[in-house]
Amino acid sequence: MDDEFKVTPWDVEGMVDYAKLIEEFGTSPLTDELLEKTARLTKSELPIFFRRRFFFSHRDYDKVLADYESGRGFFLYTGRGPSGPMHIGHIIPFFATKWLQEKFGVNLYVQITDDEKFLFKEKLTFDDTKRWAYDNILDIIAVGFDPDKTFIFQDSEFTKIYEMAIPIAKKINYSMARAVFGFTDQSKIGMIFYPAIQAAPTFFEKKRCLIPAAIDQDPYWRLQRDFAESLGYYKTAAIHSKFVPGLMGLEGKMSASKPETAIYLTDDPEEAGKKIWKYALTGGRATAKEQREKGGNPEKCVVFKWFEIFFEPDDKKLMERYHACKSGELLCGQCKRELIERVQAFLKEHQKKRKEAEKKVEKFKYTGELAREQWDKSIPEPLKK
């Protein structure tokens, strides 16, 4: 891959060329035809994640739509590794997933990988990852999923996942796992086994699975596509998003390990505003006078990119902002202040829903229709009496 950027499941660096990434990863572009078919089948206007090509690439999404059109249906699978608090970059793909669930009326499985983060993060205890699991689940529930069509499960609790992983583990040899995940002689055996557990939810139903996720996660599903049909299941499909940049530049992605680049979902709105004002990179000129004369550069501006990805739902207003910046009519301070207002409003609403989510955890994990159906499959018959 070109030296100017790097994309792996663990690291994203540089200015990502998404067209090159499609070629490198061997995926397909999300075409106008597929998006038009999505709008037609759902009888809905597409959300900004699709209209503005934040989701830009796919594997077998065309087959997912064909399955839906024919009546076979499909299901959704996504997840979260609970190693710390969630930020805006983490949650945006969940909003796209919510739209897909709502418009297609399908089941969603959300895997909370508290075991994985314990195995892969040297400094985290198992109690740490379990605590972060609960914290992250509140953020996910706050997005607004259907509690009877959504099953949120922790690997450490839903041990049926181990039984499902065993036949998968028999299909993956060490050289395959090492080639995809970069394992070494120092890698713990739990880490080496883990890809089988992560693939297991793609087999929860005898339908095609669709995974909405950032493209850096794609290597996890390439393995599944190698052996799924030999187990009598479909190769999993995926739609890939771009990365939400951190505050300080368009390179890489927002990172929880660099707090100054991220807005966390639990940040105090006032503090979040100060962080944006202090750190957010703009495409402005050195002085207001120069900007009025020469105009700004929204293509190089994190503030504009955040409006484009999530914080300006109106396409016409987004283009007005773009041209006002280019003409010098709109100065960076004003644009930042407007973004701060949007982010603060989002955080206040999300945190209100997050508090309400505390009463809903049980339903999403144990007692909702889909959750109960999955737990019933995992309970031995004698214990059901």
Score class of each variant (00 low, 15 high):
F118G: 06
P380R: 02
K117R: 12
S83P: 10
Q198H: 06
T159V: 15
E290C: 12
R337P: 05
F364A: 09
Y61E: 01
K63E: 15
K365Q: 14
E260G: 00
K170G: 13
E373V: 00
R178W: 09
A286Y: 14
S156G: 07
P219K: 05
L339P: 07
Q186N: 15
G79E: 01
W10I: 08
P167E: 12
M248C: 13
M164C: 09
L34V: 08
G232H: 09
F104T: 02
E293M: 14
R178F: 10
K300Q: 13
Y264L: 14
E4F: 05
P298W: 06
I48D: 08
P47I: 02
E338H: 07
I152F: 06
E23R: 12
K336Q: 04
F204M: 15
T8K: 08
M164H: 11
L210W: 08
V244D: 03
G249P: 03
V16M: 04
Q344Y: 09
G144F: 13
E260I: 00
F104V: 03
D155I: 11
G368V: 02
I239Q: 01
R292H: 14
L35P: 00
F104C: 06
K316T: 11
P298L: 04
Y233I: 06
Y220R: 01
Y264R: 10
S57W: 07
L30F: 02
A199D: 13
K363L: 03
A165E: 05
E251H: 10
P85T: 13
A133N: 03
F118A: 07
K130H: 04
E373M: 10
E356W: 00
H58P: 08
S70D: 11
L250I: 02
E205N: 07
I166F: 15
S83H: 07
L281G: 00
V64L: 13
E358Y: 02
V244W: 01
K363T: 10
V7Q: 08
G328Q: 03
L30R: 05
Q154M: 14
I48V: 15
K20L: 12
A214W: 01
K170M: 15
S57R: 09
G246Y: 08
K365D: 01
D11C: 12
V106N: 04
C301L: 09
D114A: 05
A237N: 01
P9Q: 09
C335K: 01
I197Y: 06
V64R: 09
K130A: 11
I172L: 15
